[in-house]
Design a binder for these strands. Structure first.
Length: 428
RNA sequence: GCCCCGAUAGUGUAGCGGCCUAUCAUACGGGCCUGUCGAGCCCGUGACAUGGGUUCAAAUCCCGUUCGGGGCGCCA
């Protein structure tokens, strides 16, 4: 007898003997019949038990969410509204679930996000929740595929580091034997060093840690950063790779899960390259006309970004940011040194990526350290790679959870994170 | 870090000075009915975040703490 999944049953002939493993979601008892609602990772099926025809265990005593292995005959013309019905011939409870459940799984009540995160492994049994992570995995796969096709090599760099990337953001301290160390906030310095080493195009998918005490629906303290860096390239090249990555991710999700996402009424944003672009100065002008703009050199407020987001429905770039708003390694625009060869990818009011052409000239880099008030001595390991023929280069970093949240239209980044780490949450 | 709001059974909520030995739904336990399908009906178990204070009387008002929601700031 073969093992099947629920979704694999539909092509079978009537009365085929099947075995499945999964969970009992619900038990409904009638006079002569018991119906068990069975669930595996692929869907739901109704297991029908004839009371007098089968002397198995008392199925009415099985608690909801118990793990089971079942066998029976697949009924092509099942009467269940679930669409899949199996006439049960055997069941073994592999592990009974305790009662009551700490979380509503198939009940009409909707638990709070906090409650769900406290009991995340149970929460993930819900299809609408696990679907998020299938989509996230698929998005990432689409990006990996695109980057590989474009000559990028995947790398791993250390997450325990000695220096801050730019001395700005708060870092988590760790004890490193006798020394003081930090959790990496970004692989920025390392991916640039790799570019100098002749690995032409690199990307990394890894955790980034930020010790900022923010408490918003779009920030977490540990997130997945997808970083690229490419040699002999400028910000325009990097932006093309970003457009390709985002549309590659969306294409992959639509191919793999399009039907399912349409079924639940989710409209996935389209990502047709090239994305619209607006410079920082143009954005300022636009906002001036709207009556609320920041002075040159300051970042947009959420309100102002919302206003820009109304102008561009979907993905768009804000380019040429002022130097003051960008880290030391960002290349100034040779034609207008008050701004930089930099860009943010936005989706409406939400920022998902920032990137730029980087400084490759060591003299300029030293100047930039100075103007940002950083001590170049802290970065000597990094500076060395600029001394022996560092190629011009560019790159970006995209937050995977942010991207997932935006594409699936989630209201809280924690929903796109299996086990989020935020200001207060360290468990589970 | 700041401002506003909130925390009541396993889950989600109503109540907002004495009508509270606290409402309802759902879950859980028991019973009845029944090819059920958000099954139905009846019964039962089960809760006022925490520490102070005000008051004859506090779930309810005040202050602190913790946690949460919304906004802002901070933020590659």
């Amino acid at each position: 007898m073969e093992f099947f999944t629920v979704s694999g049953l539909r092509s079978l002939k009537n009365d085929t003997d099947v075995r499945l493993s999964g969970w009992i979601q619900d038990v409904r008892v009638t006079k002569n019949l018991v119906f068990l609602i069975f669930r595996d990772y692929t869907g739901l099926a109704q297991l029908t038990v004839k009371r007098d025809g089968w002397a198995g265990i008392d199925v009415t005593s099985i608690s909801r969410e118990s793990a089971v292995s079942v066998q029976g005959k697949y009924l092509v013309k099942g009467m269940s509204k679930l669409g899949v019905e199996i006439l049960l011939s055997g069941i073994s409870v592999l592990n009974a679930a305790g009662t009551p459940l700490p979380l509503a799984i198939s009940d009409p009540v909707i638990s709070d996000v906090e409650t769900r995160l406290d009991h995340r492994s149970l929460d993930l049994r819900k299809r609408e929740v696990s679907r998020i992570f299938r989509a996230k995995s698929t998005l990432l796969w689409g990006i990996r595929k695109f980057l590989r096709e474009n000559g990028f090599e995947e790398v791993q760099t250390p997450k325990i580091v000695a220096a801050s990337t730019e001395g700005g953001a708060d870092l988590f301290n760790v004890k490193y034997f006798e020394k003081e160390a930090y959790l990496s906030q970004s692989p920025q310095l390392y991916k640039e060093m790799l570019v100098s080493s002749g690995i032409n195009r690199v990307f990394e998918v890894g955790p980034a840690f930020r010790a900022e005490k923010h408490n918003t629906v779009r920030h977490i303290n540990e997130f997945t950063s997808i970083d690229i860096e490419m040699a002999f390239s400028d910000h325009e090249d990097a932006m093309r790779m970003l457009e390709g990555s985002v549309s590659g991710a969306i294409d992959e999700v639509m191919n793999e899960m399009g039907d399912e996402l349409r079924e639940i009424g989710l409209k996935i944003p389209s990502a047709k390259a090239p994305f619209p672009r607006i410079t920082y100065r143009e954005a300022l002008d636009y906002l001036h006309k709207k009556g609320d703009a920041p002075p040159f050199g300051e970042d947009f407020t959420p309100e102002q970004l919302r206003s820009l987001g109304e102008k561009f429905d979907g993905f768009y770039f804000i380019t040429k940011w002022p130097s003051a708003l960008r880290p030391f390694y960002t290349m100034p625009d040779p034609e207008d040194p008050s701004v930089t060869n930099s860009f943010d990818l936005q989706f409406q009011e939400k920022e998902i990526t920032s990137g730029a052409q980087r400084v490759h000239d060591p003299e300029m880099l030293l100047e930039r350290f100075k103007s940002k008030g950083l001590d170049s001595k802290d970065f000597s390991f990094y500076l060395e790679s600029f001394m022996y023929g560092m190629p011009p280069h560019a790159g970006w970093a995209i937050g995977l959870e942010r991207l997932c949240m935006i594409i699936l239209n989630l209201s809280n980044i924690r929903e796109a994170t299996l086990f989020p780490r935020d200001r207060n949450r360290l468990v589970p």
